[in-house]
Write a protein that binds this DNA or RNA. Sequence first.
DNA 1: CCCTAACTAGTCT
DNA 2: AGACTAGTTAGGG
Length: 183
Amino acid sequence: MSNQDIINGYKIIPMTSSEENYLIINYDSYDSIYGNIFIASTNKGICYIGLGSETEMLEELRKRYSLSDLVKKTDQQHSAAISQITDPDSAAEITFHIKGSDFQLEVWNELLNTECGKTCSYKDIAEKIGKPKAVRAVATAIGQNPVTFLIPCHRIIRSDGTLGGYYWGLDIKKKILKHESFR
DNA sequence: CCCTAACTAGTCT
DNA sequence: AGACTAGTTAGGG
């Protein structure tokens, strides 16, 4: 299974370490239904989405892509992301350019198969990637997802139906799920 | 229903 | 090597 398959209009391009050198990353902050949202992208795809002040997010971005050049500049990809977040059901085509271990990329790729408005369990994801016993590792990898909202880590909940965790806070997880099931 | 223990594999120190 | 996890299951209160 390739990491560059197109799934529901989404595609993940893994960022190699050589690519990361002197890579130009455009970032900016935008207003959204979830408040201020921070989006960053390379010339190949979106590499980070986060919630919080630009100062905090910039620091986070520098940690993740320490060798790249960060430039405050709006981008067509950013507006595509915003409209997709606003209307999660719309069939947009969005590409991600993200760094991660083989395992992480495999997990994030699998998340793209989850349907809007539905949920599935961490165990389901572990089984789908053929490592049914790696549930906890899968959960950790999901938590490291650099592109919140668009790589739908919020749709993954525990087997017993409870919400499980969420990096940006459980209230946001609830809010997204509610927004997605409206239709 | 809540609690604990055992199990599990990837990542970080 | 050891200590963490956005988990799961089985068991006992």
